[in-house]
Design a protein around this nucleic acid. Structure first.
Lengths: 193, 193
DNA sequence: CTTCTAATTAGATGATTGTCGAATGACAAG
DNA sequence: CTTGTCATTCGACAATCATCTAATTAGAAG
């Protein structure tokens, strides 16, 4: 849907075409007249008219070899509405998902392994949340098992384990780890000094 | 007034910017998020946002180093109206004048002499009407005087004299010429074989 | 059929501008 | 003060597109 809008704005995003629309708003004009009034050559005007016609903004009427062009005003109605409605009508529950998906696609390869740990706070949060899906809620893990699980995604288990704890996703007590409820997961998390 | 409109359409006549508007229509976004969602680099997004801000379409709110951008919907209101109102509100009695002036500027030099006889029917009509201003209504001219008057504008008095008669601007009877009333001046006129 | 004019199509060129990498600025945290 | 992240600015490159000339199509009129 954004496709059609783009073409429409491109059609009007040119000085010559805007002037043509302005002139046609006053009445019919031939290619020749437009060319003279705009200080352009006929082929140029023809080109512009073709673009405006493609958007349904202009239509032509033949009279001998001359073609009289008129403005079709209807197409301009409800313009702002179309702009705001373009990216789906729903205000969207499927909205934050897209951002996460994009981030993961950038940092997780085809085999499901983490290629790089994101430097950006926000993106690191996304990756860590994704990492946590490997841990079951309620279950208790010895450190060795935590490392094995993390290493199945990325070699640097030490750093990632520290990050998970900093973000309040994982908790530790006496060498035993367990997954914390998502409600407590923190945005900023621990720094990486 | 067409200036501002042009900038406005140019701002929206880009795929990336249209997508940004679409995303911001759903809620606030940071530069980073937009860059990820659109598969663009941050500098590019910054550039686009600057353009949208210049048109009052987007405004920003700072939160730490992050800037949350929101869409300002008001600017989109009454868009089609602005397009049609751009080239003056008046539907214009000063309208055909402009076309004639442009044509004359193209065929009459600084000294007020006709450089070329227009090949185009319509333009030739304009030039001939202009030529007729050298003749007083009601007065009768011998052919020699007609030639002198025309030659003060262009060397080829024979052709022009024939054209003036063909267009029903000048009349002849028994070697005497006189100006006809403008009401009878014909559009197509005689061909030039 | 030939000539003339109005308009379009085709191809080439030049200006505009979207995009990126590198450098810089700004701000929070240790 | 130093470090790290989010953002902007700068300069350069590449793709898009408006414009032109030349050639072609389509009517109209001799």
């Amino acid at each position: 849907m954004t496709e059609a809008l783009l073409a429409f704005f491109k059609a009007l995003a040119d000085e010559s075409r805007l002037k043509i629309v302005g002139l046609l708003a006053q009445g019919e004009r031939s290619v020749q007249e437009l060319a003279t009034l705009l200080d352009l050559k006929e082929p140029t005007v023809s080109h512009h008219l073709a673009i405006l016609k493609a958007q349904g903004l202009v239509s032509a009427r033949a009279e001998g070899t001359t073609r009289w062009h008129r403005l079709d005003v209807d197409v301009l109605e409800g313009l702002s509405r179309r702009v705001l409605e373009s990216p789906e009508t729903g205000s969207g529950a499927a909205e934050p998902e897209t951002w996460d998906a994009k981030v993961l696609r950038g940092f997780v390869d085809a085999e499901g392994r983490l290629t790089t740990i994101p430097a950006s706070r926000r993106k690191r949060g996304v990756v860590l949340r994704w990492l946590m899906t490997a841990f079951e809620p309620g279950r208790r893990y010895p450190e060795s098992e935590v490392n094995v699980i993390i290493q199945s995604k990325h070699w640097d288990s030490a750093t990632l384990r520290r990050e998970l704890i900093g973000h309040r996703m994982l908790a530790r007590e006496g060498g035993v780890y367990w997954r914390l409820p998502e409600a407590g997961w923190v945005e900023g998390g621990a720094a990486t000094p």
